[in-house]
Simulated assay, not measured.
Amino acid sequence: MKKILILVLIFTAVQLRAQFPELSFGQVIRHEHFPSALVSPRNVDVWLPDDYSTGKEYAVLYMHDGQMLFDANLTWNKQEWGVDETMGKLMGGKSIRDCIVVAIWNTPLRHMEYFPQKAWQYLKQEEIDTLKKVSRSAGLPPLFENDIISDNYLKFIVTELKPFIDSTYATIKGPEGTCIAGSSMGGLISMYAICEYPEIFGGAACLSTHWPGIFSTENNPVPDALLLYLHNHLPYPGNNRIYFDYGTETLDALYEPFQLIADSIMREKGYMAPIWITKKFPGAGHSENAWRERLEFPLLFLLGR
């Protein structure tokens, strides 16, 4: 019986290790089922560089879709951002500041947590009623089958997660050392975060920003609502840095017309280099592999020395 128990424990340990990302650089500390009074618990992985020391202070990059960032063997599509490789290369070359990454896992409520809640208020009721019936494809649940909860998601990051990170790790606590980044819907919520909390997030990187909100642009009121929100809530230029990009293939092929409008809003509000940049990547599609190939650009923009 004792031997069986030992074998079970060994098997369980192996399974747990198998679910932990294998890294090329640094280490990941996992905070499982991080509790919240505002949103569902979820895993939070904290990436630390190889030479992490409590004697230094580190910038913090909060990233959405945290389970997609480090190890393709553990992701649903066998792709990853390669965050540890790119961070390790740039920090090793002294191209960016010392930084840690807080990888916030998504949940089944991803669409509701990442859709900018105040932009929803610019929609007419009949538009909302129509959107609540839209699904990604036939046979799948509606994208907005539950209430939008992105205000609570951001409040979770700002009032629950960030205080824990700042008290547990050696961080720069002010906006000069706090950035947020994501892709697709994660790009939308990163844009929303810097608009809602410009005093918390000094920089935001919005890759392949999913301006349509759904998966079609035909008779779709969402882009206008999101762009109107951006126009009305973009922080005054000077203290924040904002990065946008987009590709031209697969889902990214939908984005350019809306990103051009967003760019015109940025210019109208007084944003220009070096505090704002939008990059176009011809031939790039909508995938972790695509974001991995260009991750160095937003990291240099947000964290460059």
Rank of each mutant, 00 (worst) to 15 (best):
M1I: 08
M1R: 07
K2N: 00
L5F: 03
I10Y: 10
L16W: 14
F20P: 00
P21I: 05
E22H: 05
Q27N: 14
V28S: 01
I29N: 04
H31P: 02
F34N: 05
P35Y: 08
L38T: 06
D45N: 13
W47C: 12
L48H: 12
S53P: 06
G55S: 15
H64R: 06
F70I: 09
D71M: 10
N73E: 15
L74T: 08
N77S: 08
K78G: 05
G82A: 08
L90C: 09
R97E: 14
C99R: 09
C99S: 15
V101M: 00
I104H: 01
I104N: 00
W105G: 03
P108K: 04
R110A: 12
F115Y: 14
P116I: 06
L131T: 12
V134P: 06
P142W: 13
I148C: 14
I149R: 11
I149W: 08
F156S: 11
I157Y: 10
V158G: 00
P163H: 10
P163T: 12
D166C: 10
S167A: 14
T168R: 13
A170S: 15
K173G: 10
G174W: 03
I180K: 04
S184K: 00
M185H: 15
G186W: 08
G187Y: 06
L188W: 11
I189M: 13
M191C: 13
M191V: 08
M191W: 15
I194K: 08
Y197E: 00
Y197T: 04
P198A: 12
I200A: 02
A205V: 05
L207H: 05
P212R: 01
F215G: 05
F215L: 02
T217L: 02
T217N: 09
T217F: 04
E218I: 07
N219D: 14
P223F: 09
A225L: 05
Y229S: 04
L230P: 01
L230C: 07
N232E: 13
Y236T: 05
P237N: 09
P237W: 06
R241D: 09
R241I: 13
T248S: 14
E249V: 02
D252E: 00
P257C: 00
F258T: 02
F258L: 01
L260Q: 03
A262T: 02
R267K: 15
R267Y: 14
R267D: 09
T278N: 07
K279V: 15
K280C: 06
P282V: 04
A284S: 07
G285H: 05
E296S: 11
L299N: 08
L300H: 03
